[in-house]
């Protein structure tokens, strides 16, 4: 028993650690880890991962919310879109065959790899567009010299449309889909880089929670797997966030991308050979 439990914990701690360092979250790494290495069925791995994503999001959000990096109003409005997608995705996960899910997961990993390679610098807008102004979505971020600088938010409709897709991916594949959420807020809504990361992290808890509730109510969460995975990924993510300020993430990015592409190819091949 200790071998199985120790193996699950080691796998989860590793996934949480790499997920925190890469900024992609533990779900991207724990699902393939459980499927390929622990021979857990895909839908069980997805359920366990969703639970762990809820835990890591809550843990990581505490400091971001307290320090003002999370834009709570943007999060609340966009959660309407992500929850709709997540519930739909989690429901679909119960009817889609495991090989198709694995193939979709492989494609999602390639998208995450592309995102990790192409994420670029900040472009802060001084003014929100009319809709975002009416919803009071703008905020303030500290400048290099510590003075608070206001930022505007635009294109809420475009961002919300991408958030529905992020929600479906989360509920269907058991990931936080942070790569899509951050891309929507960075590229479409023009939020500052750190604000979009913190806000995405905060929203991930509700998105994954919506999916986890569907799985839990359906009886698709295996406590024997989900409990050690949740504890392990949370511990790994905590360690990763502590190490993060002391490592050169830019240099590690290539390594993360190689790992993502290799896992995507392995999962894609497994799925393709069974379809």
């Amino acid at each position: 028993m200790l071998t199985i439990l120790g193996g699950l914990l080691a796998l989860s701690i590793g996934a949480g650690f790499i997920g925190a360092l890469s900024g992609l979250g533990g779900g991207v790494f724990i699902v393939p880890g459980l499927v390929v290495l622990a021979h857990i069925p895909m839908h069980v791995a997805v359920g366990a991962s969703l639970i762990s994503v809820v835990a890591t999001s809550a843990g990581a959000s505490v400091a971001f919310v307290r320090d003002g990096w999370t834009n709570l109003r943007v999060a609340i409005i966009l959660e309407c879109a992500t929850v709709t997608g997540a519930v739909t995705g989690a429901y679909m996960a119960g009817v889609i065959s495991p090989p198709v899910l694995e193939l979709l997961f492989a494609l999602m990993m390639l998208q995450s790899a592309w995102f990790a390679m192409t994420r670029h610098g900040d472009e802060i807008l001084a003014q929100s567009d009319e809709l975002c102004e009416r919803l009071r979505l703008g905020g303030q971020v500290p400048d290099d010299d510590g003075t608070m600088r206001p930022y505007g938010v635009v294109n809420l409709r475009g961002g919300a449309a991408l958030m529905v897709i992020a929600g479906v991916m989360s509920g269907l594949l058991g990931v936080g889909a942070g790569a899509v959420k951050v891309a929507a807020m960075d590229y479409l809504m023009k939020l500052p880089l750190k604000v979009s990361s913190a806000t995405s992290n905060f929203m991930i808890g509700v998105t994954a929670g919506a999916g986890a509730l569907v799985f839990l109510a359906r009886g698709d969460i295996a406590a024997s797997v989900a409990a050690p995975v949740a504890l392990g990924v949370t511990a790994g993510a905590l360690a990763g966030s502590r190490v993060l300020p002391h490592v050169n993430v830019g240099a590690l990015r290539i390594l993360f991308v190689i790992i993502l592409v290799l896992i995507a190819l392995e999962m894609g091949w497994r799925a393709y050979s069974r379809i």
């Binding site: 929850v83 709709t84 997540a86 519930v87 989690a90 429901y91 509730l213 799985f215 109510a217 359906r218």
Partner: peptide, 11 residues
Amino acid sequence: AGLIAGMMLGR
């Protein structure tokens, strides 16, 4: 409502 609907849908 979405979160609660998810639970009911799962049931």
